[in-house]
Design a protein around this nucleic acid. Structure first.
Lengths: 145, 145
DNA sequence: TTAAATAAAGATTTAAAACTCTTTTATTTG
DNA sequence: CAAATAAAAGAGTTTTAAATCTTTATTTAA
């Protein structure tokens, strides 16, 4: 729920790459897929897209791979989500009504405003690089097993 | 996001039926579909399912239709969501990790715990019948146009 | 300057969700 | 009891998301 599968993989990949490339290393797509438990070609597609938007960096050829530079480390998870799933999670109506608004609210409008703002706050206050340390210390995980 | 389309329709339908049947009336499936802007046969399927679970009542034949009795008016939106989309929204990991837990948390675990509990609180404190008045007064809406 | 490594791109397949259509069953009323 | 009405049930179809496979382009290093 909340995010599409694509977006879940995207967030996990971005966090993974950030951690692994902190020291300047580059990470191959196979290693990324293994590191976050995702289908190789699927995450490749997602990263191509994030790469075009500057949320990850990459180089081809031997010793190539993905990495996240200092600038991108400061981008937020909200940017990643926006790039993949769009604005809807931040602004959409909980009951799927397109013209739900302050003046014509759905019955759950104000409740969902609170929830959405909580989501927005969480995602826009977390940068891509924020999790490096906790992952390094084994305090959090982005892999199933 | 958050809910499946099926679930959005389901919630809207249930709220609609609750309001319209408050006085004991029964509402036909066509009227429901029109009242919440949903495909007739699709919402019919959803209501069949909710009916089996006792979240709505129905009778066949002339003057038949759907309604929601006193008991079901007291059921919560959480029950409806659980019936259609399952538990996942209440317990699932924000990053889609199946074995994310307190002891093996994903990087966003605690943040999502807050968000989920907000969703849970909202849905389980709102009964199906809670919106009758606000809909009657034209203070909230469950239809696009 | 060629071979190997690697990401990018494109095309295709699979699976799940959303939606539609047809037939059946139950109920009511004349 | 027959006809009409309305939901239930079942069997599709369409659309979208997810996943896979194949080919191309770029880079490096021998």
């Amino acid at each position: 729920m909340v995010f599409s599968k694509t977006c879940e993989y995207g967030i996990r990949a971005v966090i993974f790459i950030a951690q692994k490339s902190e020291n300047g290393a580059k990470i191959g797509i196979k290693e990324i897929a293994a590191g976050i438990d995702s289908p190789v070609h699927f995450i490749a597609k997602i990263l191509q897209d994030l790469s075009k938007r500057g949320l990850v960096q990459s180089t081809k050829g031997p010793n190539g791979g993905f990495y996240i530079d200092k600038v991108a480390q400061k981008r937020t998870l909200a940017d990643v989500v926006r790039a993949i799933d769009g604005e809807n999670i931040f602004i959409g109506c909980g009951l799927g009504l397109k013209n739900c608004s302050e003046t014509k609210p759905c019955p759950l409008h104000s409740e969902f405003k609170l929830i959405r703002s909580e989501i927005q706050k969480t995602l826009s206050s977390a940068t891509i690089g924020d999790f490096n340390e906790s992952l390094n210390l084994g305090l959090s995980f982005i892999k199933e097993r």
